[in-house]
Simulated scan of single mutants.
Amino acid sequence: MPLHVPPAPAPALRTVLTALGSPTAVREARTPSLRDTQGPLTPELPLPVHVLDRIAPAAAPATRLAGWRFLIRCHERAVAAAETRLTPDGWAFSHFFEGPYVTATERALRQAETMPGSYQPRLLSVPELYMLTLWLHGDFTADGTQGLLAATDLLVPLAPAPPGIAAHRPHRVAELLPVLTHRLTPAATPLLGSPA
């Protein structure tokens, strides 16, 4: 499947390029792989990061754009990622990081390229579950900053996924959201001293 990566805002990309060009920013980053890499570092595959703010059984899921994430490549592999965030003054560099979500994002994007259909890749974070998914939006011409989940969009949980949710297995939004809703809905607890 062809992936149609939305263009990142130019100011967001500039902030990442500035941080990569700053010896202080790279040296002070908590990313040993970024500091120890020999060779040019290039920000690639900008993905809008949306946060799922509300999952409720009777309401449409509410998402909001939180930033843009760039994979940082050296030669042919991603060694880290850079995140930007929107501030009242515009786009600002947030931080560099490494870890399992960098390689999981790269793996999920390669997996998505083999699927039938055309999608716009995004990231969807579910903070309450410490979960990150690759969101494959069906309308690849849409503005990547708009966060409307369509029932037929695909969500690919990235590793590490929460217990009971298989990482790197694509799910339709209509299938996965009820599972997430069930996980986030507190179970009714009996009152102490009440009969069972």
Rank of each mutant, 00 (worst) to 15 (best):
H95L: 04
M115K: 04
M131P: 08
V79S: 01
S125I: 09
E128M: 15
C74E: 11
L109W: 07
T105F: 00
V79M: 04
L124E: 04
P116T: 12
P88S: 10
G99L: 08
R73L: 13
L132H: 04
F96D: 02
S125K: 12
S125L: 14
S118Y: 09
M115P: 00
G90E: 03
L86E: 05
E83T: 06
Y101Q: 10
L134R: 01
S94I: 00
A104Y: 10
W135F: 05
M131L: 15
A92L: 02
A82K: 09
P100A: 15
L132R: 10
T133G: 02
T114W: 11
Q120L: 09
R122L: 13
V126W: 03
L136S: 13
T133D: 05
E83F: 00
C74K: 08
P127E: 14
L136R: 09
L86D: 00
W91D: 00
E76W: 11
Y119H: 14
H137Y: 03
D89H: 09
G90M: 03
T114D: 14
E98W: 05
T105A: 03
T84H: 00
R110L: 14
E98A: 14
T84I: 02
E98H: 12
A104C: 12
G99R: 08
I72E: 02
P127K: 13
W91A: 01
F70Y: 13
T87R: 04
G99K: 06
E83M: 06
P88Y: 06
I72D: 02
G90C: 05
T87A: 10
S125W: 11
H95F: 03
A80N: 04
F70A: 01
C74Y: 01
A80E: 05
L134G: 02
R85K: 07
R107Y: 12
Q120Y: 04
Y101M: 07
P127S: 13
G117E: 07
W91R: 00
Y101N: 05
A104N: 10
T87P: 00
Y119R: 11
F70N: 00
L86K: 02
F97R: 11
Y101R: 10
E83G: 02
A104G: 11
E128Q: 15
A80I: 10
A78D: 13
F93Y: 09
E83Y: 00
L129Q: 13
P116Q: 05
L124V: 08
S125D: 14
L134W: 01
E83C: 03
R107D: 08
T103K: 11
E98C: 10
H137V: 06
F97G: 05
R107F: 14
F70T: 00
Q111K: 14
T84K: 01
D89V: 07
D89N: 08
E113M: 14
L71T: 03
P116D: 08
T133P: 01
L123E: 12
R122S: 07
C74Q: 15
G117C: 07
T133F: 03
P88R: 11
R85E: 05
W91M: 02
L71Y: 01
L136K: 10
L109N: 07
E128V: 14
A80R: 05
R107T: 15
S118I: 15
L136D: 07
T133A: 14
L124D: 02
R122H: 08
L132F: 04
Y119T: 07
C74T: 11
R85T: 08
F93W: 07
H137L: 07
Y119V: 10
W135R: 02
W91V: 04
S94A: 14
Q120D: 04
Q111D: 13
T114L: 13
W135K: 03
